[in-house]
Design a protein around this nucleic acid. Structure first.
Lengths: 207, 207
DNA sequence: GTCTATAGAATGATAGAC
DNA sequence: GTCTATCATTCTATAGAC
């Protein structure tokens, strides 16, 4: 079976429109998830913010869960891209610090979608979503590799299980300390980042 | 105006019943808040768990927010009691560590009520509740005093603003790392506590 | 004419309030 | 137990693109 010619531009245009719309939807969902979380976000809000009809939303995504899911997949992809953009010759500990700082920057900018760490229908949907799980796995593997390397190089406490370190870094993405310090308005975002990076890697105790 | 006699035992008994019921309600709310959070907790569940009619609940508390509020006030009181129970001669850093470990123990045991750190109607209700705010203030003052003392004694990093330390300690009460490690079933609760205490006070970096 | 998007209404279930 | 509001989801009818 051979194809005679290129796909006609008309069709491509239509597809592009659809793709652009999906991107817009996902951006809005991402923002709303960061601002109010999954439960407080309503499908009406999403449609209103994107500027399309609710019914059109359901043409793209069959449920609220899938909407959030798509946003999480996109977020995971962004994380992967950031991780891969880091120079490979950097020390493992510095790569870990760079990723951690990046996620906290997202959070401070209101761009880190946060899902209820507890129960909820979302968890179930996410767990069965291959794209999400693949992304999560890849990110975990990358960070896990750096963690073990940094431990071997004596940069990270070797008494800590690698998985505990991994969770601790993940948790920075939803650290309420960031919001609280931001609310206090006593520090710039840069200062807040430095503070939390310090407590995370150097701890509270004096060195 | 003189009172002729003691309050009759009947009335006292009735009041005791009401008080006991309120205690039972608050305990259930506390547990449910810890298990599923404010949004996922339903008033029906609370009534069912206490074993009373929903209408009776509303005799004690006029809204779901006030229910949660009462649980938070009770939790704050428990924290105050624990803080005051610590020997005054202990070093400030050890007092801080004791409180932190105690809050994490509660969390691991499913007894730490967690509210959405974000927005929500709860925040507003809590902020206007004198009992809660007083309790929060007192706890913050106690911890704040220890933090400054520990910093003066060179036990806590003096480059950190005291308020950042305070928030960091508060955040341990809702640290998702605890749940994740518990879910992994690779460590006992004691080991999990030690791990998170270590990352909190000593950081991830090797010393 | 067919396909699709839209706006708005209808449905159904959940859950707070009383 | 009842009332009611909210919200996810679906349906309908209109309008426009090709």
């Amino acid at each position: 079976m051979t194809t005679h010619a290129q796909t006609p531009p008309k069709k491509s245009f239509k597809i592009q429109m659809l793709a652009a719309r999906e991107t817009a939807i996902i951006q809005s969902v991402n923002r709303l998830l960061a601002e109010k979380g999954f439960d407080a976000m309503t499908v009406d809000e999403v449609a209103a913010e994107v500027g399309i009809a609710k019914a059109s939303l359901y043409k793209h995504f069959t449920s609220k869960e899938e909407l959030a899911c798509a946003a999480m997949v996109a977020a995971m992809r962004k994380a992967q891209a950031f991780i891969q953009s880091l120079p490979a010759e950097q020390a493992a500990i510095d790569q870990l610090k760079a990723v951690t700082r990046w996620t906290m920057t997202l959070k401070l900018d209101g761009l880190m979608p946060s899902l209820p760490s507890q129960n909820s229908s979302l968890r179930a949907t996410l767990m069965t979503n291959k794209d999400y799980m693949d992304g999560l796995m890849e990110v975990s593997d990358s960070l896990g590799g750096w963690i073990e390397k940094a431990q071997a190089q004596g940069q990270i406490n070797q008494a800590l299980p690698a998985v505990a370190v991994l969770y601790t870094l993940f948790a920075r993405a939803c650290d309420p300390v960031l919001e609280f310090l931001k609310m206090g308005e006593q520090h710039t975002d840069e200062q807040i980042l430095d503070l939390v990076m310090s407590t995370c890697f150097d701890g509270l105790s004096a060195r």
